[in-house]
Structure formats: C-alpha cells, structure tokens
Amino acid sequence: MDKVFHSIYASHIKQFIQLKQKLGFKYSSGIFYLNKIDLFAIERGDTSAGITKDFADKWADKKPNESDFNRYNRIGFLLQLSSYIRDLGIESYVPKLPPIPHHTFIPYVYSKEQIDAIFAACDGLRLKITHNHSCLFCMPLLLRLLYSTGLRIGEAVALKNEDVNLEDNYLLVRDSKNGKERIIPISASLSSVCKEYRWHRDRLPVVQKNSEYFFIKANGMKCGQGVNRWFKKCLDLAGILHGTTESPRMHDLRHTFAVTALATMAESGIDLYVSLPILSNYLGHQSIGATNHYVRLTASMFPDLIRDVDMVCLNVFPKYRNYEAN
C-alpha cells in the first residue's frame, strides 16, 4: 500500500485496507475511494472520531456528470469504512446505499467465422518499418490464448515464464483482478502453439536473462502497450465494425470463451448448473452470480442447445449488476 493518509480517519483507513489485503483482496478500487474520503475529510476539517451524518450526506451528494454506478461505489466504500469504525467501538454513522443502478451492458460475442477472420488477419500483420519495441511478435499467440482460456488481457501479459507450465499444460494466474491466484488448465493444442512461440522467442537477438515475462516485445521488454492498437487493426482487416461503446473489444474474447464453453457443455449433455462453479473458478469470478449471466446469454443465443435446462433456474442466482463491462 503506497498511499499515505492524513485526515482524522487516517489510521482507521490504513488498518481497514490492511485487513482487506490480509483477507486476500487487492482492494485497489477501495484504496482509490478511501483516498478520496481522506482528502474530503481534510478539506472539511473534520475532527470527529467517527463518520458523522453530515459528512456522509455531503459525501453522498451526486457530482456533476457523475454516473449512478460511480456514486453507488463511492457511498459503498464509505459504508464499509464507517462500519469498520463502529466495530472498533467508535460511534460512526453508516450511510444507506441507494438502489443498485440498472445495468444494460450486453457483451459482444464473436461468431466462429469472426474468430477465424481475426486470427487470419493477425497472422498476416507485418511491420511497415522494422523496430524492436513492437508487441506484434506475440499477438498471434496472445489472441489465441485469450480466446482459448478466457483470461483477462491484464492477466495474460502479466504471466511470467515460471507461470507457464507447458509440460503439465497449465497456467498459474497470480496478478488477477480479484487478487486471488488460480490455476488454468490449457489444451494440448494451445500448449503446442505456446511451445512454438517460446522456441522463436528464445532466439530473438536480445538478452533474455532479464526477460522474466512470457509475452515480450522483440527487444525483450514486457508486452503491454500497443496490444489494443494491433487488435483494432485485426478487426479492421477482418471487416468487423468497431469504435462505438457497443462495438466489440479485446475483452469480449473472454465473454466469447464463457458462452462457447457453456454451449459446448450443453451440447455434450452436461448439466450447466453442475458445471457453473467450475467455470466460475476458471474465469476468476468472485461469485457464481457473475458467471450465471453467461447462462442467460447462452440461453438467448443457443435456445435449442439448452432447451432441457429448467428456465426457472436462470434466476436461482441473484442478478449481478456488472459482469465485467470493463
């Protein structure tokens, strides 16, 4: 934790963050909002040991052009902090959360033909001017890995050489969104492509001793920036329109994996709700409710495949307000 807090609540904020992180949470969003709470308390000159109702009411005021989701999150983190302070035996006002904002986001799911076109476009990409700081070298494998495993792009580029086991065919995901490690089994075919990439990568004319990451640029540095730019180029070449808030993104490869996995299980006669916890862990979701959205999406896209699923069960799990719109 790099943030330094200075308000009357500084020690409580620091202790609360440490508690969350010891429980296994990254709590990066929490640190961001708690820092804002700390600055807000300094601006107001608050001296109360606990959160006052006036503080909570002013904090809950909607800001100009602020989304309902951001306001909901802001109030939620103040609620958590105030509840923690009360648990310490200090009188503190706990604000009431507003209604959960209605989320209308629907992920884009690529068709098999679109995926094939994206891969073909990526394989045909070439640099107009040769330079060694481009991530184009790893793009063909990176896109195939995202599609085949449902990894988030941040998780994929954070993989280190020691995290990629191509003998037993699994990936160890350490740097996940929710701060929890998980093991991802991979297919023999994907492992074979990874081995081919690694063979060529290890023969790049750069010093490999300092390259601890699996996906690297031609100069041996970690791959990251530039990936989205190349992906958009692939979409252009594949004839897939993009550029609006509803148009496809790289992250939708993850959504496509989830829906495809559920459709494949249904086609094989596997009970979706037996397999749902497995897929939830595989994707690194914090709750089955988040994964359950993919069942609803699969139901709408492949009605014939899951005709034997009791549609009443689609609402067994509570509707999760945001299943990775970002």
Rank of each mutant, 00 (worst) to 15 (best):
S192V: 07
P303N: 14
R296K: 13
L272R: 12
Y9S: 05
S287N: 10
D57P: 03
M1V: 05
L88R: 06
H242W: 03
E212Q: 13
D2N: 11
E66H: 02
L272V: 01
H103K: 09
G124S: 02
D123L: 00
L237D: 12
K62D: 06
E113G: 09
T149P: 06
G220D: 03
L171S: 03
E196W: 09
Y72W: 14
T130E: 04
Q225Y: 13
K128W: 05
N70S: 14
S7E: 14
A156F: 11
S7P: 02
L142M: 05
H102L: 15
N165F: 03
H255R: 01
T52G: 08
A49V: 01
L305F: 03
I75V: 09
W230G: 13
S280P: 15
S191P: 13
S176D: 04
E91I: 14
V94Q: 05
C194A: 11
E181L: 12
C313Y: 04
P64Y: 00
F119D: 00
I17M: 07
D68C: 08
L81Q: 07
R182N: 06
F32C: 00
I85K: 01
V94W: 06
N73E: 07
S268E: 14
H242Q: 06
Y213K: 11
T149R: 11
G269T: 02
